[in-house]
Amino acid sequence: MLILETKDLSKRYDGVAALDGLSLGIEAGAVTAVIGPNGSGKSTLVNVLSGVAPKTGGRIAVSGVALGRITASDVAAYGITRTFQEVRLFNQMNVMENLLVVLTEKNVFGAILERHAEKHARRAEELLRKVNLWEKRSELAGGLSYGQRKLLEIARALASGADIYLFDEPFAGLFPEMVKIVEGVLVELRREGKTVVLIEHNMDLIRALADRVVVLDGGKLLAEGATAATLGRREVLEAYLGE
């Protein structure tokens, strides 16, 4: 079953097409890797799907429901969350608060009356332990190492409780033991039936983790399908792997 579909999706920046009539489907409960050369539109796709950048044409549907002209805060209501290629944390807030802010009341009037919430603190602790940052809970997010910042951003995405996770290069620049943690997160999400869209360059990780692969080139769909079969296709090898 497709949980996320795009039809003729386009995004232009000053006349340059970053996405050019892209039609694809993301399977529910699977890990889908999005690959393609630099500038092929991978990050733009995540920005448009998450509402951070408005699309300039085409359609996006979540579980068959079309998303109109909506903003990032609306997209969250459809159970979509994301991480950023360049990590974006709330730097001058501590690690714990970076998660609490995602867990607590979003309504502006509800939030002003909400004070202490034990259940949110417990959930935040659980997530911080999962990514090995519990000991750092009182430190400012901006003071963490690069890898720790990436892990915190992943924990923050998990805190949203979304059904669809868009991860933009979550493994880039991580030490091996941190790669293991992120792998564990992805495996667990799939086991829980969540949908993961993963932008990644490392073919070994893709072969190990992804059920399906979507290949972009120049903002267009080059190929999509099961991982092994798609990666073996001649046009994919030529365009992306240069083999």
Binding site: E97, L100, K106, E114
Partner: peptide, 30 residues
């Protein structure tokens, strides 16, 4: 106000308004 969940949210808006909206906040209301 600053010790409420609202107080935490406005500080997050100060840090990164686009990022906080990804989590369902309507920053403009805050």
């Amino acid at each position: 106000i600053v010790r409420s969940s609202f107080g935490r949210a406005i500080r997050a808006i100060r840090e990164d308004e686009a990022a906080i909206q990804v989590f369902g906040y309507r920053a403009i209301n805050y």
